[in-house]
Amino acid sequence: MKKLIVIAGLALVLAACSDSEEPSTNKNTVEDGNSANENNALDHGIEDEKVGFTLGDDGKVIEADVPKDEADAILAAYKEYIDAFNKEDIKRYMDVIASEPAGFDRAEDEAALKEAFKAFDTTYTTSNETIVEFVEDRAEVFAEIDVLMKEPDSERSTKQAGRQVVVFIKEDGDWKVTSLHFIGNQ
């Protein structure tokens, strides 16, 4: 079961990792895990702490003002990102990832995804997809997400629900995933 949880975390975060070339080491000090140059429990490697969403007085996510053609293209890229993952189509999935993502290493993400697809059948089910931030070449898509992970040829599975914000950037006229931020429900 521990392996299942580790892979679940891997699949959700998709190998979001530090830009640092240096390996992290635990020196058994009070500062371990909170170093400014590595991912840690406080900021999860997020340099742009402005990523997120806002709830209105009615409890609904506040939508950004986005031109219709751009909104359609961004949401189509988000749908392709989810569909490619659910089909376990690595090429399709990598086609929607930025060439140099800000939130993770592209090669590590691909390798982790291949391992996760070998170990589990994973399905993402999303709802309430909303563009919550938009500027000319950058957009953030909020969604509520349910993740179901099953071991192939077994009845063992785990479910997790949460909210995510996927950050897109425009590359060569197409919207590409550059980072992912997930908040699990308890």
Rank of each mutant, 00 (worst) to 15 (best):
N26A: 06
E22F: 07
A84C: 06
E110V: 04
G33W: 04
T126L: 08
G59M: 01
E110Q: 15
V6D: 15
V177C: 02
F85T: 06
K176Q: 04
E31P: 00
R106G: 06
A143P: 00
R138Q: 05
E70Y: 00
Q160D: 11
E129W: 01
D48E: 08
D137K: 04
D121T: 11
D89E: 08
L10D: 14
H181I: 13
A116R: 02
G59I: 05
E171C: 07
T178S: 08
P152L: 00
T130N: 00
T178P: 04
G52I: 01
D69C: 01
G52R: 03
K176F: 04
S35T: 12
A116D: 10
A76V: 06
G33F: 02
F134Y: 15
K50V: 05
R156M: 12
N128R: 08
V13E: 15
I82Y: 03
L148E: 12
A36P: 09
V167R: 09
I131E: 00
L14Y: 05
D83I: 02
N28M: 13
E47V: 13
S18K: 00
K27N: 12
D19K: 11
K150A: 09
T54F: 07
C17R: 12
D43Y: 09
S24I: 13
T130Y: 00
I74P: 04
G162S: 07
S154W: 00
A98D: 09
L42V: 14
F182S: 11
T158L: 14
E49H: 09
E38V: 03
R163I: 10
T122A: 12
G173L: 07
E31D: 14
T126H: 01
T29K: 02
E31W: 15
A119C: 03
G103P: 07
Q160C: 12
E155M: 10
T125E: 10
E47C: 08
E151A: 05
A107T: 12
G162E: 07
E151R: 03
F120E: 07
K150Q: 09
L75R: 02
A41M: 14
A76R: 06
V61K: 03
E100P: 06
D172L: 08
I82Q: 04
D48I: 03
G45T: 07
